[in-house]
Structure formats: C-alpha cells, structure tokens
Design a protein around this nucleic acid. Structure first.
Length: 453
RNA sequence: GGCCCGUUCGUCUAUCGGUUAGGACAUCUGGUUUUCAACCAGGUAAGAGGGGUUCGACUCCCCUACGGGCUGCCA
C-alpha cells in the first residue's frame, strides 16, 4: 500500500482537528506545541487539519499577526487543509444564538461590568466562589423591557445545567467539573460582539471537529463548551489537554514569550526539524530524538504518551537537535548558502564535508569560509614561537593537496625532532587560530592564506 | 477564597501492589582521534512530607507542603 497522498487526496477518515490561534501576537513555542499535536493527529489518521483564526476580538486581532502565524507554520512545514476566520462567520453565530435563546439556554442580563466586578469582590470577601448569581435570570419580561427602555445595555449568558460535566480526557484521564462552580459563560457582549467560547463551540460542531488538543488552560472552558455543544444538538469531540510549558525554573513561560517566538528562534538559527522534533516529544514518555522528516513525527506520535504535569522547556535543548539536523544535510540543501559565502562550486563539496562537523547552526559556516579564504589570526604560544616560525618556513609550495599536511609535518618532525601533540597542535593553532576543528589533512587544500603575524 | 490538574535521577519520563525503580537527553570516566566533535563502552544520579489500607505501597485512600491552570462583557 502506498503511503503518500496528494495535497487534495480524499479523506481517509473523518478525524478532524484544528489549530485555533487568535491573531493577537506571534506564534510561540507553547502555541506551536498545540498546533503540532493537532496537525500530527489529523495526519496520522489521514484526516483533516483546519487552521482557524479566532479573531472575534476585533480590538486585538490584526491581519499582520494572522499573516505571520501562517508564514511561521509554513516555515515549519505544517500545512492545513482548510483555513477559516471567525470574523467571516458572525451571522452564523447570531443564528445559533437565536436557536439557543428559543431553547431557553441563553438569557439576557443587564449588569454592567463594574457591577459584576463588585459582586465578585463581595463574594470573594465572604469566602464564596465568585460565580455569577444569575440575578438577571429571574427578571420578568416586563422588567427586562423596562430596563431596555431605560437604556440599560444587555448582554447574554448561557444557562449551564448544574450537573457534573464529565469527559474522558485523552491526556488527563477522567475529568469531572461541577457546573455550579462555574459562572454561566457570557456568549454575547453588550456591544453585540460574539465571544470566543461561543464562536469556538459553534465552529467545532459546524466544522465537524472530532478531536481537540489544547492547553490545560482551557480545561474549564471545555466543561462549558461541552454543554453549549450539546444544547445545539451537537456531539462534543474528544478532548486532550496538554500541560503548559514553563521555564527552566518552573516559572510561567508567557512572561518570557519575547524570547520564545518562532521568529526569534528562527533568527537564532534553530532548524524547523529540530523544533518540531522537540515539540512532538517534550513532556511525553517517548525519547526526544531528531526526526528525519515530518512523516517520522507523524508515525511516532501518540497523544496519550503525554503527561499531565507542567513541562519545563529549555530553548538550549534545540541546539543539539539543530546541530544533528544540520550535519545530516546533503550538499544540495546548503549549496546556495555556501555559494553566498564565496566558496567556489569546485570546492563546495569538500568545504561542506569538512565544515559541517564543526558547526551548530548553518550561519556558523561563515567562520570557516573566512578562515579558509582570509586566513586566521594565528595562535602561537611563546614557547612555540621559534618552532612555528621554522615550520612555516618549510611549508611546501602550492597547490596543496590532502597529502600536504603529512608531507609537511613529516619534514618538520625530522627537522625539529618534535612529535605527537607537541608537533601537531602548535601548527594547528598557527594555521587555524584555534585548538579544535576538522582534520588538518582535509583542511590544507582549502586554506588559501596563512597569516604569519 | 473556590474549582481542576500535578509532584519519580539535573531534564522529559516508565512502572497499571511484590522490580537490583527502567529508558532517553544532559553530565562524568574510559576507548578511538594529531585536536574538537562524532562514535563505542561504562559510571554517578530519583519516588515532596506525614498518616492510613495491606503480608507487602512509587503505585490505592486521606492530610500537609509545593507547582501549574481557571475563577473576564479576553482568547
């Protein structure tokens, strides 16, 4: 059976997942983890992956961010089958709201935000849970009409059934939340704007989403959304809530988002496959290892292998993976960059073979290109100075080949009596300006300039 | 304050009552290499605390501590 599928191949299953970022900022590692999990699940099942821009917050949502989210996902190789924008579906949400009003599951409220805040403070002071008291639910039609004519703005809440809302979370296990410990969620603001919880529930039903992976910060939302979906006669999807990423000391990660946006990681030289490899495994019981392809990640992904405890994320862990990935690249993958460094096509293969083992990120190639083309500032210990001077005087004429090093050092050995490390290391330092690097025999043909001072 | 979740080597984790508590990454040592890296071999390293239940608890229950999340007319 052939595994590959064309970009528009027919669905092999009805598994549908979605990544639903709000375009209010750049995508970051935490977001990416969610996106990747949903993507991998859909691909593994041969299902559909939807990119949904949750842009109902018109004040904070920006097209610029939407564009950057899509660009970042594409950079990583995460492709979506469908893209949706909540701002294009407002009419549908209003229609769904009418349906729920008719069913008596959405009710009109008249408190101002200030009033609600006061209520909460009062409840907190009395050591009571700050749950909305449903004061407006008891208002008679006449009362409501009166308040409307008096200019009170109304907003709309969903009437929760006070039951225990339960689901079997694919990561957390069985969850039970007492609906009476949660406020009736606001679905429509006084200014008419549809709120996330409602839009999201409508979309997940309408779009046939069957599996939602999201952060543990949505656990309580899930409880209310399950009831909203059921009130719309929809079937709630399966849910999995992954733990949130924290910094190395367990601190909240969002405070440091500035350094953890994909944009930043990208400019630091992190390779997409390194990032994907870490994100697909970090916090799971499977070992973090560099994947050779996205298909690798798809094959090895198992959402149930993730733990519920908060997960520490260290950006440094990306660099060993990046290095491993970079070193595995064939010449064609890096030919353009090597050419841009001024390395001739004839020497490109040798240059890459030699340099790749000594870099972490691709831009590290520059220092090797510089060294070969312009020479290195020699590193000469005072006790080696005369030895080095004598040895350099014995350098054979060009062109240098792979045997130049052994011929030269053999001659120097005979002339000076030095051998082993005391022979080789000062010469390495004199020619390359450093104590580490590729085999000298390999390097010699590429060295164009030897600085002597 | 209320509700939900969590706590095993430095890190991510395995263990579905009986294990020398396993693996991966990191680290250390040895081998290999003119150097570094890579590679190979080996080592160090863990059940938050206290009560129960049980012949036996990392595992089940309770309490405490600590950590995370939610508690918006944000998402």
């Amino acid at each position: 059976m052939k595994k590959h599928r064309g970009p528009r191949s027919a669905k092999m299953s009805n598994v549908t997942t979605r990544f639903a970022p709000s375009p209010t900022g750049y995508i970051h590692v935490g977001n990416l983890r969610t996106a990747l999990m949903n993507y991998l699940i859909s691909r593994k099942a041969g299902g559909t992956f939807i990119l949904r821009l949750d842009d109902t917050d018109q004040e904070r949502s920006k097209q610029e961010y939407a564009d950057s989210i899509m660009a970042d996902l594409e950079w990583l190789g995460i492709h979506w089958d469908r893209v949706e924008k909540q701002s294009m579906r407002i009419d549908r949400y209003r229609e769904a709201a009418e349906e729920l009003k008719n069913k008596g599951r959405v009710y009109e409220c008249f408190e101002s935000s200030i009033e609600l805040e006061l209520k909460r403070k009062k409840q907190l002071n009395m050591h009571r849970p700050p749950v909305y008291d449903r004061a407006s639910l008891g208002l008679s039609d006449a009362n409501k009409a009166k308040m409307r004519t008096e200019g009170y703005d109304s907003y709309w809440r969903f009437l929760l059934n006070w039951t225990h809302i339960e689901w079997n979370d694919k990561i957390l296990g069985p969850i039970s939340i007492d609906a009476s410990s949660v406020s009736d969620p606001v679905l429509i603001r006084a200014d008419g704007r549809i709120l996330y919880t409602f839009a999201s529930s409508v979309d997940d039903i309408d779009m046939g989403v069957t599996f939602i992976v999201r952060g543990a910060d949505h656990v309580t939302n899930t409880a209310t959304q399950i009831q909203i979906m059921e009130a719309m006669s929809g079937t709630p999807p399966s849910f999995a809530h992954h733990s949130l990423l924290t910094g190395g000391k367990g601190e909240e990660l969002s405070k440091r988002l500035g350094t953890l946006s994909l944009r930043d990681l990208r400019t630091q030289g992190v390779e997409p496959m390194a990032l994907l490899s870490l994100m697909a495994r970090l916090g799971s019981s499977k070992p973090v290892e560099l994947a050779s392809s996205i298909q690798d990640l798809i094959d090895g992904f198992d959402v149930s292998s993730f733990g519920a405890a908060p997960t520490k994320f260290n950006a440094e862990d990306l660099f060993p993976l990046t290095r491993a990935h970079v070193q595995s690249l064939p010449l064609p993958a890096v030919a353009d960059q090597i050419k841009a460094l001024g390395v001739t096509e004839a020497e490109a293969q040798d240059f890459w073979n030699i340099a790749k083992a000594n870099i972490t990120i691709l831009s590290d190639l520059k220092e090797w290109a510089d060294l070969f083309q312009n020479g290195a500032d020699p590193l000469i210990e005072t006790e080696d100075a005369s030895f080095v001077q004598e040895a350099l005087a014995m350098l054979p004429p060009r062109p240098w080949t792979k045997s130049t090093w052994s011929e030269w050092t053999e001659a120097v050995k005979t002339a000076t009596g030095r051998k082993g490390k005391t022979l080789y290391m000062p010469l390495r330092k004199a020619l390359t300006g450093r104590t580490d690097g590729p085999e000298m025999a390999d390097i010699m043909p590429l060295i164009k300039v030897v600085k002597t001072g």
